[in-house]
Nucleic acid binder design. Structure first.
Length: 508
RNA sequence: GGUCCGUUCGUCUAGUCGGUUAGGACGCCAGGUUUUCAUCCUGGAAAUCAGGGGUUCGAGUCCCCUACGGACUGCCA
């Protein structure tokens, strides 16, 4: 191992929002490099102008920011290897293409897309797959076939062309993958991939290799979908004379759909019943909205924690990890090799855990905007108390109102199931007597009220459960909520008496 | 079809050098705690380690084959 500084990159293509698989790739890159004290850069791979989606780049940046994945170089922050947008690096790639051609490792090809399409269709109809490769490259229109003069003439007359890599015959190519070990492929299986398009931009393969080299990337950590083209990349490093500086590869297992099979994709949107994007996304063409984890109520830390465990584990039984702890514990050796199906239930559990461990001050702050919308501006100490009382019933912050509305408003209706189970013929009378007891409670605290009511129950030989359940029904409107006397203390004596009175009237 | 990658409870996974009652978590079920709901606690069901062959005294762990799944197979990334 060289002493080269660890440098990784996250290199998405701005063709839409980043889905959770992409976020996980970014996360693993981040954890890996931070653990080793390295850098991480964000490079935007926008060499396909036809698939460019406005807003996607900003979305990617915003998502990483929300997740706390702080890259220290690249689009948005700049750095010594700028520009970091491949479309802005157009002029850089030319010389490398030239180098490949001059060394007979690449060639000009003038075949029209239409022609190739036709051939592809023909093969398809015969249930074969067409591949432009060493077996047939001499049957096409390229600089290996036509004369140098003819090639020159075509280039000078602006005839559209692409550049293809000239894959060697029968060579064993080895890819050393940090997760999968050594992968061996015979070059005869590979096709002469287009590395430079007729629009003047390189394709992913070339741009990726050139930029990774120029940006001094030490480790390429990317999705498994790139494994099949990794041998091609190895070849490019070799032909460009960069084999010694070739980064180490790690191909991450894919994130699969929870139902059935197949890899999770952007297209899945909300179809699966859970968000596949970190942030909400509005399609600029259709205006279709896809939900995001953030907007669905997930805490960034919980989201990250959950994502980290999809394909990686620390080898201990600890499951709750802060970003700092993840960095400390992370290693590529502990990343699994098989794809994982995403489990929305487990995601909820993580969020629940994070809500539970969140301190009341922060939770109170998070809940304040929603209350403000309802024109409720509780005293801070009071809100802190309420938050503390209902916290363990919440998986999401937005569930607060559902769990705590009765602290602010008397119930408008009574849960029918609760009425059926908790209210009977004697309830009205019993509640009247309880009301009297509460009326005379002084001072009015949870403890005093409880003592008085319990004393009353004992004295009258009433059933504690029945009394308490009926009383809760009148105060809360349902069979839920924290300690009833805590609620009573918070809403106060007058409000308590009114709710009892109203409840008796309504329920009879 | 071809190439490559993968396969331990329903799901996420532990299992790194072959000897475990195959462990944990989510979810599920039951019991306990509580005046309710939730939390929490305890317990339970749940993997013949994809299947079949080897190697070995002994294999989830090593080897081979098969099956199944996935990715890739574009002038997309």
């Amino acid at each position: 191992m060289s002493k080269q500084k660890v440098r990784v990159r996250f290199a998405p293509s701005p063709t839409g929002p980043l889905h959770i698989g992409g976020v996980r790739t970014a996360l693993y890159n981040y954890l890996f490099t931070k653990k080793l004290g390295g850098d991480m850069l964000l490079r935007i791979e926008d060499t396909d102008q036809t698939r460019y989606v406005p807003g996607a780049e900003d979305y990617i940046i915003e998502s990483l920011k929300w997740c706390g994945i702080a890259y220290n170089e690249g689009v948005g922050v700049g750095g010594p290897h700028a520009p970091y947008r491949q479309s802005e690096r157009k002029s850089i790639y030319r010389q490398y293409i030239q180098h490949l051609i001059e060394n007979n490792n690449a060639y000009y090809a003038f075949d029209t897309p239409q022609h190739l399409d036709e051939i592809r269709k023909q093969h398809e109809s015969q249930k074969k797959t067409f591949q432009y490769d060493q077996t047939n490259r001499l049957q096409f229109c390229n600089s290996l076939v036509i004369t140098a003069a003819e090639t020159k003439a075509r280039l000078e007359s602006d005839t559209p062309y692409v550049v293809r890599i000239k894959i060697p015959q029968n060579e064993e190519i080895f890819v050393n993958d940090l997760i999968r070990g050594q992968v061996r492929v015979n070059s005869s299986q590979l096709d002469d991939k287009v590395i430079f398009k007729s629009d003047g931009l390189p394709t992913y393969h070339l741009a990726n290799v050139v930029d990774d080299y120029l940006m001094e990337i030490s480790h390429v950590i990317r999705g498994e979908e790139w494994l099949p083209s990794a041998p091609l990349h190895v070849l490019l490093y070799r032909y460009l004379g960069w084999e010694d500086a070739m980064p180490q590869f790690a191909h991450l297992p894919l994130l699969l759909k929870p139902e059935g099979n197949g890899k999770l994709s952007k297209r899945d949107g909300d179809r699966l019943g859970f968000p596949v994007f970190p942030l909400q996304w509005t399609d600029p063409n259709t205006n279709e909205i896809s939900s995001g984890y953030k907007e669905s109520g997930y805490l960034a830390d919980a989201f990250i924690n959950m994502l980290a465990f999809l394909g990686w584990n620390p080898g201990t039984e600890q499951e709750i990890f802060s970003m700092e702890q993840l960095i400390e514990a992370f290693s590529l050796e502990r990343v699994g090799r098989s794809g994982s199906k995403f489990d929305p239930e487990k995601a909820k559990w993580f969020n629940h855990k994070y809500v539970q461990q969140m301190n009341n001050e922060i939770l109170a702050q998070l809940v304040t905007p929603e209350l403000a919308l309802k024109v409720i501006h509780p005293d801070n100490r009071l809100l802190l108390t309420i938050v503390g009382l209902v916290k363990n019933r919440m998986t999401f912050v937005h569930e607060f109102w559902n769990q705590a509305s009765f602290f602010f408003y008397a119930p408008n209706n009574y849960d029918s199931k609760a009425v059926k189970e908790r209210w009977n013929a004697e309830s009205a009378y019993t509640m009247k007597t309880v009301s009297t007891v509460i009326q005379t409670t002084q001072p009015f605290t949870a403890q005093d009220a409880k003592a008085r009511v319990m004393h009353h129950i004992a004295q009258q030989q009433l059933n504690t459960g029945q009394v308490m359940n009926a009383l809760r029904l009148l105060i809360v409107g349902a069979s839920k909520g924290p300690d009833l006397f805590e609620i009573i203390q918070i809403i106060g004596k007058e409000e308590t008496l009114q709710r009892i009175k109203k409840g008796i009237t309504v329920l009879g």
